[in-house]
Write a protein that binds this DNA or RNA. Sequence first.
DNA 1: CTGAAAGCGCTAACAA
DNA 2: TTGTTAGCGCTTTCAG
Lengths: 339, 339
Amino acid sequence: MADIADVARLAGVSTATVSRALNGKTASAATREKVLAAAAELGYVVSSNASGLASGRTRHIGFMVPFIDRWFFTDLLTGIESVLLSQGYDVTLYDLQGNESQRDQVFGSSLRRASIDGLIAASIELTPDEIRALRALGKPVVSIGGYIEGATAVDVDNARMATLATEHLLSLGHTRIAYVGAGRTIASAFQLGDARYDGWLSAMRAAGLEVEGTGFWEADFDIPSGYAAAKALLAHDRPTAIFAASDEIGIGCMLAARDLGLRVPDDLSVVGIDDHKLSAFFGLTTLAQDPAGQGRLAAHLLLAQLDNPGAAPEHRTLTPRFVVRSSTARPGGAVHGTA
Amino acid sequence: MADIADVARLAGVSTATVSRALNGKTASAATREKVLAAAAELGYVVSSNASGLASGRTRHIGFMVPFIDRWFFTDLLTGIESVLLSQGYDVTLYDLQGNESQRDQVFGSSLRRASIDGLIAASIELTPDEIRALRALGKPVVSIGGYIEGATAVDVDNARMATLATEHLLSLGHTRIAYVGAGRTIASAFQLGDARYDGWLSAMRAAGLEVEGTGFWEADFDIPSGYAAAKALLAHDRPTAIFAASDEIGIGCMLAARDLGLRVPDDLSVVGIDDHKLSAFFGLTTLAQDPAGQGRLAAHLLLAQLDNPGAAPEHRTLTPRFVVRSSTARPGGAVHGTA
DNA sequence: CTGAAAGCGCTAACAA
DNA sequence: TTGTTAGCGCTTTCAG
């Protein structure tokens, strides 16, 4: 493979000039053109190792997730890749799923080989040691949906989303609204805390409504778990509406209602959070999170920090978009939105 | 950050000895211990750039996919990460989704920066230019579910799976079996060719059955598309069974049947291919593909090639596992399997 | 604006 | 088994 010396020879300049011309540093237009032509002719591409060793930059960005096999994280990844690849950055994935040793491997070694210029961490709960390890890197970090000290943050206001969803049901005239969502353990893995639960609770209380009877039903963030929770809930009680902490839970609730002979939305309204890929299909009313957009924003913010290392960390809270579909209506009746 | 010279100084040996001790090359037990202790004390981690530049190895593996936001590819990735991370390799993702420029970027530049030691490519259809680019790298390549000349291949026998699925229905006594699956365009994006269609066809013909009437119904590999196809199919004809080219299609078919007032499996049997995460929930009978296992195997094969560069490329065809659930039964009646 | 030269941190001959 | 010595291919002062 051609190296920088070959290009320099062909262009009739020094390797230093080739380097400058290729990296957009000072070089006369004529020189730059000669260099570009020579590089193209030889099919020259810089060696990332050599370049990285000499400059300290690698053009690799790390993306750290608790697990990758969930809709939210893959959509984040898609968004991140789309901006980073086009800027000439590669994305290295650190999947913390699996045993502890995989996690230690990532923090103890992978991250520290100085092989990345920056990191995007999604929904990661870090130990104090891990935070220290991250800070020791001295590389910019952007967190998505979770707080990391000193890092730029991108998130959505979960409590606010839950309040909006609940208020939507309230405004339709529902008073008996159950919450199906994550317990503390699961919520914390997603860094949601109890924000969605709290949002529901405060909206209900603000409306002067009783919460004890209909209450809270625990479910993991997936369809089967939402289904099971709704089955249990509906066997025990008959609220007119369910606020589901995620669309997957909401879809599970809709399927359970159907299996119980209940019509959605006539007998039961359901609203979720996410705008999951399947939600349009099921007609689920929801608050859209747009993870791909979050990923793109995170990538842009990281790039900005790379260009401007001195800048103070930012905190961007995204506004969810309300998507009304056919799963919500006035209690007992008329459809509110259209599919 | 401590570098190799610091470790050498603290251990009282040369940098070369440190390098050898750390890389498992010849070194006396006593020396190795001293070096390890010194490295641990200083928190030393090798610089991947320096090491890569000197040795030509980067401990980075590329994983190339047509898109990452599909169950199959994320599960592959999970499997790949689990073995590669534990062996000290990082995984860089090349997502070809999006515009052509993203693809050109990957082939023209990312891959060629010599930043990976090897590549795993899943379901990728390459242009002649791209194959040339890949071969020029001189790095080992493992392909999953698609053929790349000179590369080690991991796949499943799609035609055989389709035949098995169809034969399962035949053995239950079904004779009118529709196929809902991908048209040529979509199938080729997944590198499935028409193998699943062919498998269905040959099983039907071997059983001496007519195919014209019930026939082939086109659908993309997702739930909404399977739903729409089944709605159209069942409005037009009433086969007693459907063979779906993927579980997501199959789930769509089950939902459509239910909405039409048909009971599964009493009025309609459905069998799919994949063992998708949701299939157990829906009780779908299927042929399991185990993508995480495919990913782990591909990673192991790649590692083996890295250790032994001379070895000839292998071709491993995995055997699917039949998972009988509650979506298939004798026509008109009794359940065959259990949920 | 450009060239010469000194490294970036490590590995791999080669000797000893 | 270990140390010495060249680089790996590039970027970046520092002069000019």
